[in-house]
Amino acid sequence: MTNTIPQDLPLRNDLIGEVPYGAPQLDVPVCLNVNENPYQPEPAVVDEIAERVRQVAPTLNRYPDREHTALREAFARYLKRESGVWLDVGQIWGANGSNEIMLQVFQAFGGPGRKALGADPTYSMYPEYARDTFTQWLTVPRRDDFTLDLDALLRAMGREKPAIVLLTSPNNPTGTILPMDDLEAVLKASAEIGVAGAKDGVHPVVVVDEAYIEFRDPGMPTALELLGRYPNLAVSRTMSKAFAFAGARVGYLAASPGIIDCVRIVRMPYHLSAVTQATALAALEHTDEQLAQVSHLRETREATADWLKHQTWHGQPLKVADSQSNFLLFGGSFDDRDRIFDELLKRGVLIRVVGPEGWLRVCMGIDEEMARFREALTEVLAQLEHE
């Protein structure tokens, strides 16, 4: 999209030259670029959603429950089932996607003179939350295998005294999981340092973004299990990914009541519409159906990773980052990844140019889509190798 902003508009100086964030939305047969669950809701779920919306439609002349209490109760029941962690309503907060959750976190704890610290490569929206809230965004590099360099992060925490330490598990775009021992080390360190621009005795908030956590292998822990021991921990979740609900835009935060109350200060009044709340409640009533394909998508991820590792580029096997998500970062040595992306797109397959140079990311689709991806990538690599 071209920039059509007139020069005489008083756009903030720091936004001049910026373009809106977003992955390409193209009408192609195989879309494997935005990490969606590719399986549509079952007809019973669609019917339940329609019925719930029909029930609230006559009340749309009134504002919705601004505390979305019923939805928070439903989130609590889901988290108890999914992770074995029981939380009170006061420990949960919902919003329009985890994007809004993260923006509210930055609004509450960031701001002029404040810093947020992450580990690169990571989700490309984090710098934009920081920019939009006048928060300084800092990162430490991950190791070559994309695992967290814990020592580097702890040193940066002590040096920079951030208000927010933001870690992602599984990490986007790499799929890397965050070990609980590393997270505990970060949480313990955060209790010993101050926050630049804050009064004495204030400590950083540690936020773990678990947007893709349902795709982890069974038995792997979640940061939710540490909430009872660390009051400065906050865990972000979403219904967009494993829950097959990206179009509904529903995310939520689990944290101490104190953190939730801080976020409530900056939320817009009635930010979750009655329709959004009804839709989310209907989907949560059908958790089994919504998550029915998660195990198959895990299997697809593992099979695709194995297949990619047997492909070559300039005589060397492709690298594939270890992933606990529904996507794979692959390549590692592509000297013109944009050309590979374009050639795949010509064949009707849309993936993502993201992450470090030399890498591409593909998310898991239905079986027929993955077959077409494999076929197209084989053609493209062979063509470019012989040019």
Rank of each mutant, 00 (worst) to 15 (best):
T2Y: 04
N3H: 11
I5Y: 03
L9I: 14
L11P: 08
N13P: 02
N13L: 14
D14H: 00
D14Q: 04
I16S: 03
G17P: 10
G17N: 08
Q25K: 14
L26V: 08
V28A: 04
V30E: 00
V34F: 11
P38A: 12
E42V: 07
P43V: 11
V46C: 05
D47I: 08
R52H: 04
P58C: 10
T59W: 08
Y63E: 13
Y63K: 14
D65K: 11
R66F: 10
A70T: 13
E73T: 15
F75G: 03
R77N: 11
Y78M: 07
Y78N: 03
R81P: 01
S83H: 15
W86K: 15
L87F: 06
G90S: 08
Q91F: 06
I92G: 05
A95P: 06
N96C: 14
N96P: 03
S98Y: 08
N99M: 12
N99K: 14
M102F: 04
M102R: 03
Q104V: 08
V105N: 06
Q107P: 04
A108F: 00
A108W: 03
R114Q: 07
K115R: 15
D120H: 09
P121R: 13
S124I: 14
S124H: 13
D132K: 10
T133W: 04
T133L: 03
Q136D: 15
R142Q: 10
D144Q: 12
D145I: 12
F146A: 08
L148Q: 12
A152E: 12
A152D: 11
A152K: 12
A156I: 05
M157S: 02
R159A: 11
E160Q: 09
K161D: 10
P162I: 09
A163S: 13
V165Y: 11
L166C: 02
N172P: 02
P173G: 03
L178T: 14
L178E: 09
M180D: 06
L183M: 04
E184N: 02
E184D: 02
L187R: 06
E192W: 01
H203V: 15
V206P: 03
V207G: 09
Y212T: 13
L224R: 00
L227K: 01
P231I: 10
L233E: 01
S236Y: 01
A242F: 10
F243P: 12
F245D: 14
R249I: 07
V250E: 00
I259Y: 03
I260L: 09
I260W: 00
D261C: 12
H271K: 08
T279A: 02
A280W: 02
L284P: 05
L284C: 07
D288R: 14
A292H: 02
A292R: 03
A292I: 03
Q293G: 03
L297C: 01
E299H: 09
E299W: 07
E299L: 10
T300K: 02
H314T: 10
G315W: 08
L318E: 01
L318P: 07
K319G: 05
A321W: 04
Q324T: 12
Q324C: 07
S325R: 09
L329W: 02
F334G: 05
R337A: 00
I340V: 14
E343P: 11
L344P: 07
L344T: 06
R347A: 04
R352T: 15
L360W: 06
C363T: 14
E369K: 13
R372D: 06
F373D: 01
R374T: 01
A382G: 01
E385G: 08
H386F: 06
